[in-house]
Nucleic acid binder design. Structure first.
Lengths: 224, 224, 224, 224
DNA sequence: CATGAATGAGTCTTCATTCAT
DNA sequence: AATGAATGAAGACTCATTCAT
């Protein structure tokens, strides 16, 4: 019972009641749905099949979610936030931007290895954004935060003189892309790529590619 | 009605009649289907809609293809081979493995830029491989050839002393992943990443990351 | 839960508790339901929407009414009795059958004008009597009392010599029909008919059509 | 296969092909649907039940009609046009407006008597126009033409001096209303009203109510 | 008295596929 | 070689109703 009938604008704020049991059910459904999608593909993940996986009736899903689309949206949010939270925690533990960058890449792969299901589901969902707008919206939700996180690290690293003078935005896209691209191959066939080796390779590579050859002096503070 | 007549594995050879007009129709349908998928997503690309795009009747598709799945398979093949042919041609023009590697990356991005539709469709299709087997099959068709191509370049480069002593297989996966990962972001939002800049960044980076610091001497004959 | 306790025919008398608050709730629900139906049609008036309009939970309705059907039945009763009471009061104030007839017609239209919602809802509900039996039952509840009322006026008017020798039953049906038919058009489009003008026209017309040309002498005693 | 996928404006003109068999099916479905609605009510007339009545599969209806709504719309059109055509033909046979008016009323009732099913279905459908807009649209389709037809007769009758100086528009609404109102009671219970008697009563009454007391002199041509 | 949660029957609709022409 | 017509399976969704709290 999400947005009820009220078709007025209000929705996000407060979100009505959100009982404890309600939230629990939602999480349970989301989790089961991820499993269902991961094992059979998004197309096969009908409400019926998901409900079956949870062990409830189809209409329970309709009761807790405003429709299949809202469920999928929530799945996306769950998948992204789980991963982001993990990575961010690891990054925050490190001091110095080179270490943070390394942590970002390593944490990304570490999380992957532990949550294969999430990523298999994610790749299946990727294809479901039919319209250009939906794709763009997904980009805004999924990629922009990651890239901005990376960008912040890179930019600060430049200010602190650890990184050389590249375009932070482009490098952020490149780093995130490298991680996702390797992930993608691994999703399609777990045995096709060695996640750990790729992680190591990328870590070294981007460390090399970002480092300031001049040493630890701040880029902006060239007036030593 | 394709495999009704020849249910054995082989496909291209024999193929009963394969009239000229027949092949033309098939290509026409495949091309239109790609456009349809790219513009509205795979889910919206029903036979009806594709037929509409071509300007023919639904049943024509059923007539020429052994079902929707065969059509999509053919689309995948078409998408991959177009791209691979282009890249391979560019790579073959170059002498020396570092140049070939550079060509591989640059050609990949060049082809993307010219055929956005192909990649948008591809990403949509990615999600449609529901089962683990289907995913693995796609990996075999789509990624293995690319990685093997890269691997061959890398390995030969090592033999010729241009490249350092990395694991070719892992680096191949990493390179291909970097290209695809950037592509992915660009598919979701054309304006989110600058394809050319990323290409340049990756080219430099992988050149840097593969080069043999010792110079042009062959890796195997290092202890000379 | 109404008839669970008393599954025999009788309804009003006994009715178990019929707390004051209980009756209030029922009336409140009925009133809100009328509004809901009038504004969105019977089909859209689900228990959920009605409950929403009242500001209570769906199950409250199920608690107070023995199902959706009982609710609608009660709505019908409410709509009819409100109107009938009003008309009857006006008619009773008049002396002489021609005046009573005029009052009947004028009161009908006066009530309409003041309670548009009621009639919009009524027309929507009309269509919901699916079976022949349900329709006949509605006829017995809704039309027979009205026609009998009119019939009584007409017959007495004939006895008193004010009206000519028509068939009271038929004329009653005709008068009631004229009122309802105009109302119907007005329900579909408030601006399409001028209620007051139609009322005036009908009043004059039926006065003309019922009057005894011979004057005030009683019909039965015509040969005096 | 009505409006296909093309969501551009064009639709009504040409209407694609409209094969002979296609039109036959549509008529067959419409006819059966009317029967279904008349016998069980609109709510019970699901696509499944209608398809059952025709003896076809549910999806055949979806194939020939753009959805349930289009089917119902077509039913409305069919019901109205059948009746209107019949009445118009009868009216056109008469010379002189008083005769035409009499013919209009008599034809209305004659058609009713022969096509009870149509009117039972119609009354059921009346309630299905939920929104104000839908109601207004129905008014425009159903009532306006009738009223305009009557209005034309009345106005011409005034010009020719047969009718007195009433407001044509109001009287048209009143006449149509009287017919429909009687019909309504008859729909709810066939035995409750005597159609023929009501028709006779109304015919006389409206003849009386419209006639110019001054005789056959044209109203406008007062300068005798 | 009231409610949140759950249910299952039933609705419309879409789709790939088949078949006679 | 092509098509219009038909089909049945499956989908998402809505709704009145029930039940424990």
């Amino acid at each position: 019972m999400r947005s009820k009938i009220t078709p007025d604008g209000r929705k996000s704020p407060g979100r009505k009641k959100s009982t404890f049991i309600e939230e629990a059910r939602r999480r349970q459904i989301v989790r089961s749905a991820i499993t269902t999608i991961a094992s059979g593909g998004l197309a096969q993940a009908s409400l019926a099949r998901i409900a079956d996986e949870v062990g409830i009736s189809k209409s329970v899903i309709s009761y807790h979610f405003d429709g299949r689309d809202e469920l999928i949206e929530e799945i996306v949010v769950a998948l992204l936030s789980e991963s982001n939270r993990f990575i961010r925690a690891r990054v925050d533990q490190e001091l110095g931007c080179p270490a943070k960058l390394r942590a970002y890449i390593e944490a990304s792969f570490a999380f992957m290895a532990e949550h294969r299901e999430n990523f298999v589901a994610m790749v299946d969902i990727w294809g479901s954004f039919g319209t250009v707008d939906a794709k763009r919206a997904f980009n805004a939700t999924a990629y922009d935060p990651c890239r901005r996180h990376l960008e912040a690290i890179l930019r600060r690293g430049q200010q602190e003189g650890d990184f050389r003078g590249f375009t932070p935005r482009t490098l952020a896209a490149t780093i995130q892309g490298s991680i996702d691209g390797v992930m993608l191959q691994w999703v399609f066939d777990e045995g096709a790529v060695d996640l750990a080796e790729c992680a190591a390779e990328l870590t070294i590579m981007f460390d090399l590619a970002t480092r300031n050859p001049a040493g630890g002096a701040p880029t902006t503070g060239s007036g030593e």
